[in-house]
Design a binder for these strands. Structure first.
Lengths: 229, 229
DNA sequence: GTCTATATGGAGATAGAC
DNA sequence: GTCTATCTCCATATAGAC
């Protein structure tokens, strides 16, 4: 991120750029929108836009950051209203998708690494790392104080696992062409139940022997995704 | 893909472009290599390169296609030499990684959609669809006639599941900075065993009740990834 | 069918005005 | 600190030579 421009004027300009970009992305898609288009709509020169956002990708990242703000607020409400893990998980994902809905048509045309912050393939590590941390923290809130049943050894990995699950659902949703994305809704119903049961099953004594194997694999994975660009 | 240029001259030129591109990608990375660089090294004008490959991405795809040729041949050998599922699976993935090894340094800098052919986020559907089909077919050969134990209902989904597994391992490998990518080797050892056990467990009577749920989810997923760009 | 020369339009960089 | 004008370099397109 750029060295935070926090003067009132800079804030206004940043916001103008973000508004212009969002409107244009929705009207004509990401690729079809040029930096000149964005600058024009925001009544700026191209250079001014680059003064506030180093790249076009960084504009997308900033827009994504705004949806995280909303998601964090929503999840605070949600966790207050119910301790039921399945309800919380479903609610958090539903809200995230609703939030992204206006962007769905052009999200598919973004390069994968832009959409999946923290993907190991992502070229801009530091910016997206912050986004990923925030997204994973949201999943932490979903778990914390919930009714979730799971073998204790798995607790440290839940955030990451649920975040990965959310990524998977979201990329399914992006290319879901069923009316109202009903297939995604059905997939959510099925898999939220499945995930909940799967976690519960880690406590069954006979199956517990496999936990060690799973944990080793998870631990190998930990840090990797963190450190990786 | 372009309407197959199959004259001897075209074949020679295509190959020259591919050789030049591969060498340059390895020397200085994907982004740092310009189409002019590639054309120069192949002693061609830029336009000639575009005559044979519509885009820079298509060159990468063609290079990837060549590794699939090798993988197909290798797996034919492998399946002849052993029916053991775990050995076959491990062998197929090891070979694929060995094949890709010279490209590892720059693969991380490719946009995600270039690397993962058939990713739902991929913008060029038809070309990558063919690659994905081939990659999945290889996993089909691994399963066919092997010692794998799994509930019959899952058979139609094995190709896709194993392909996804391979994609996951590969993206881990791309950003694995441990010496000789030993972490990937350890992850493979753990997860190949895990996957094999997981499949076997689908036949345990008490757990079989969950299979319906899992299958419904898998079936929802089927077709989606296919159809999706 | 194969290829060269040249053109176009966009992302991002920069010099300096205010 | 904020922004304008202008520049460079690249992917990709195209007209037409051979």
């Amino acid at each position: 991120m750029l060295p935070e421009r926090n003067t009132p004027k800079a804030k206004r300009t940043r916001q103008a750029v973000l508004n212009a970009a969002l409107a244009l992305f929705q009207e004509r898609g990401f690729e079809a929108t040029t930096m000149r288009d964005i600058a024009d709509r925001a009544s700026l020169a191209v250079g001014a836009t680059y003064y506030h956002f180093r790249t076009k990708d960084e504009i997308v990242l900033a827009l994504y950051g705004a949806t995280l703000d909303a998601a964090e607020a929503w999840v605070r409400e949600l966790t207050r209203s119910t301790p039921d893990f399945a309800v919380r998980l479903r609610g958090a994902i539903d809200q995230a998708l609703a939030q992204l809905a206006p962007c769905r048509p052009f999200l598919g045309h973004l390069a994968g690494h832009v959409f999946i912050p923290g993907s190991p393939l992502s070229p801009f590590s530091s910016e997206s790392a912050a986004m990923r941390e925030r997204a994973m923290a949201i999943m932490g809130s979903v778990v914390e104080g919930s009714t979730l049943k799971v073998a204790g050894e798995f607790r440290p990995h839940l955030q990451r696992l649920l975040w990965l699950y959310q990524m998977g659902i979201t990329s399914y949703w992006i290319s879901d062409r069923s009316p109202q994305q009903r297939n995604t809704q059905r997939l959510l119903s099925l898999t939220v139940a499945l995930v909940t049961k799967l976690f519960a099953v880690t406590r069954v004594p006979i199956l517990r022997q496999a936990n060690g194997l799973i944990l080793s694999a998870l631990e190998l994975g930990t840090g990797r995704l963190e450190q990786a660009a």
